[in-house]
Simulated scan of single mutants.
Amino acid sequence: MSSAELAAQQVKDMDEDELIALVLLEKHLKRFDIFPFETLLELSGFTEKYLRKITSSLVEKKLIFTVKTPYEGISLLISGLDLLALHSLSAGDVIDSFGREIGVGKEADIFDGLTSEGSRVSLKFYRIGRISFRDVARKRAYVPPESRVPWMLRSIEAAKKEFIALRRLFARDIAVPKPIARDRHVVVMEYLDGEIVAYAKEVLNPEIVLEETLGIIKDVYKEGLVNADLSAFNIFVTANGRVILIDWPQAMRSGSKRGKEKLLMDIKNVCDYFKRRFGIATDYTEKYNKMIGN
């Protein structure tokens, strides 16, 4: 069971004081990898006996872990962060029910869900650094600060950046997923029915897909942004044949120092893929020059 599924099972049964403890741990992620028990005791205002009862419950629910050395402390697990995000999204009437896993990537897990109005949505849980963390966690009982907490913070930042980019682009009628909400490291967006080009066994009318993809890149550039990490894994074709570009956490301003360099690389990556897989020859430098007005 994934950490998000674990969190979803427990989100409606959480005690208010358990949530207070989790929020305090999250609030001080930048300050502590292992949160001193004495500091949590002071900040929470709970009695020692009661706080130990709460932390024992949270350990049992696999939302935190505790250590005795080098000092007695507590650390938030990604499942705890998942629960806080789901609790906020549920309390804010954004999400009413949590569904199945529909995608797993290097940096994110995707689940489907329903809004309070019954609309189907996708929930993207960022997992920046997951591979590095698992490797360290497999080798050591104590995970050092540089291997875990900063990755949680980077996941939160990645979700924030993607949501801002999606909101900006969608407002200009550019073909990206409709953003609905963000909480911590989770982005809620419209549910897309279709396939990612890189995973699709068959792509109908690849020439049109390429043309539309390059058109979206141009629209994004005119809006002042560059995806900066575009590949066939970012090209989504819906069931009715519409092309949408997904994954925008690394988007940068087109006028930034490396903006044009990244634009050229995005165009090259896409053109090279379509040539390699479908035999469609495209002069990517010509496409680039036309986009920037040369």
Rank of each mutant, 00 (worst) to 15 (best):
I54W: 06
G224K: 15
N294T: 07
S44Y: 10
L192T: 00
R242M: 04
R134C: 12
V197C: 13
D193I: 01
R167F: 01
D82F: 01
L41H: 04
A181W: 06
D135M: 13
L245H: 03
L58D: 08
R52H: 09
R31Q: 05
K61D: 11
I20F: 11
E195P: 00
Y126L: 12
I196C: 07
A21Y: 09
P150M: 08
T66K: 11
G80K: 04
I292C: 01
S79D: 01
S256Q: 07
L19A: 14
F65S: 04
R140F: 15
S3W: 02
L192I: 01
F111T: 10
A137P: 03
R182G: 00
D93N: 12
K49P: 03
V197M: 07
F35G: 03
A165T: 09
V209H: 13
F274W: 11
G45T: 13
V176S: 02
L19F: 11
F170S: 10
A181V: 05
S90E: 03
K124D: 09
I54V: 13
M14D: 11
R52G: 02
A137S: 14
D96Q: 09
L81M: 10
T282L: 12
D219P: 01
K124V: 14
E261F: 15
R253S: 09
L81P: 03
F32L: 00
M152V: 05
P145A: 12
D13S: 09
Y273E: 00
D109L: 04
I280S: 09
V11I: 12
R31C: 00
W248R: 02
D173T: 06
R134T: 10
L245D: 01
K218I: 01
E162V: 14
Y191F: 10
T69V: 11
I196T: 08
D96G: 14
D96N: 11
S147I: 06
A158S: 12
A85N: 06
V203G: 12
L22Y: 14
D17Y: 07
R148S: 07
I292E: 05
E223L: 03
E5W: 13
V243D: 04
R52F: 04
K275R: 15
K27Y: 04
L63E: 10
L24D: 08
K12W: 04
H87S: 14
M14S: 14
I156N: 05
D17L: 04
D183E: 14
L230S: 03
D173N: 14
V121A: 04
T55Q: 05
R148C: 06
L214D: 12
I102F: 05
R134V: 08
S132V: 15
S122W: 05
K106S: 14
Y142A: 01
P150T: 05
E38Y: 09
F37M: 05
F32T: 00
Q9G: 10
G113D: 06
M252K: 12
Y191V: 03
L225K: 03
K61N: 06
A228R: 07
I110T: 10
S2W: 07
I78Y: 09
L225W: 01
W248G: 00
S44T: 14
